[in-house]
Amino acid sequence: MDVFMKGLSKAKEGVVAAAEKTKQGVAEAAGKTKEGVLYVGSKTKEGVVHGVATVAEKTKEQVTNVGGAVVTGVTAVAQKTVEGAGSIAAATGFVKKDQLGKNEEGAPQEGILEDMPVDPDNEAYEMPSEEGYQDYEPEA
């Protein structure tokens, strides 16, 4: 019985440690998101679009440190934060509304985080759909 109880105690310690790591990862992701939003706020009209992409990228980098179902929630929060940063930029006159959601080359930025393969159960990952990809044929 002692062996059984000791095993359960060790398992509990492992769960607590994993929860603490997840909590730490979420806190880091939130900190990076805040950094990115402050970065966007300090940019001029020309830099705002690039700044919004930076927020998304920093958040995406930190999301990889967070495991399990938390990833889905962090990704949703990050996307809403990026959308909010863009709205703030438009409201303050840093950028025109028609410039939001495009990178410096004018290509749409939507789907940055949505296409990231995420499995809350950590069982399997699927690649994003290939609808947006084109076949590449090298020139002879």
Rank of each mutant, 00 (worst) to 15 (best):
M1E: 00
D2N: 15
F4L: 06
K6C: 02
G7F: 05
S9E: 14
K10A: 10
A11P: 00
A11T: 06
A11R: 00
K12N: 01
K12P: 00
E13D: 05
E13Y: 11
G14C: 13
V16G: 03
A19W: 14
A19Y: 15
A19G: 02
A19C: 04
T22R: 01
G25W: 11
A27E: 02
A27S: 04
A29S: 02
A29L: 07
A29W: 15
A30K: 02
G31R: 12
K32L: 15
E35M: 14
E35W: 10
G36C: 11
G36L: 04
L38D: 01
G41H: 14
S42Q: 09
S42L: 14
K43D: 00
K43W: 15
K45P: 02
E46M: 08
E46D: 08
E46C: 05
V49C: 13
V49K: 13
V49A: 09
V49L: 14
H50P: 01
H50V: 03
H50C: 09
G51M: 15
G51N: 05
V52A: 11
T54G: 09
E57K: 08
K58W: 11
K58M: 15
K60C: 09
K60G: 03
V63T: 02
V63M: 14
V63P: 01
T64N: 11
T64E: 06
T64P: 03
T64F: 12
T64C: 12
N65A: 06
V66G: 02
V66W: 14
V66I: 15
G67Y: 04
A69F: 13
A69R: 10
A69I: 14
V70R: 01
V70Q: 01
V70C: 04
T72H: 14
T72N: 13
T72Q: 10
V74N: 01
V74E: 01
V74F: 08
T75A: 14
V77E: 02
V77D: 01
A78H: 04
Q79N: 06
K80D: 02
S87V: 13
I88T: 03
I88C: 04
I88S: 02
A89H: 04
A90H: 11
A91S: 05
T92R: 04
G93F: 02
F94M: 02
F94N: 03
F94C: 15
K96F: 13
K97E: 07
Q99M: 11
E104I: 05
E105F: 07
E105V: 09
E105A: 07
G106L: 05
G106T: 05
E110S: 07
I112L: 05
I112R: 08
I112C: 06
L113V: 15
E114N: 07
E114K: 12
M116L: 13
V118D: 08
D119A: 13
D119V: 05
P120Q: 13
P120G: 10
P120T: 11
A124N: 04
M127S: 04
P128N: 12
E130C: 10
Y133A: 08
Y133E: 10
Q134E: 06
Y136T: 08
E137K: 04
P138N: 03
A140N: 11
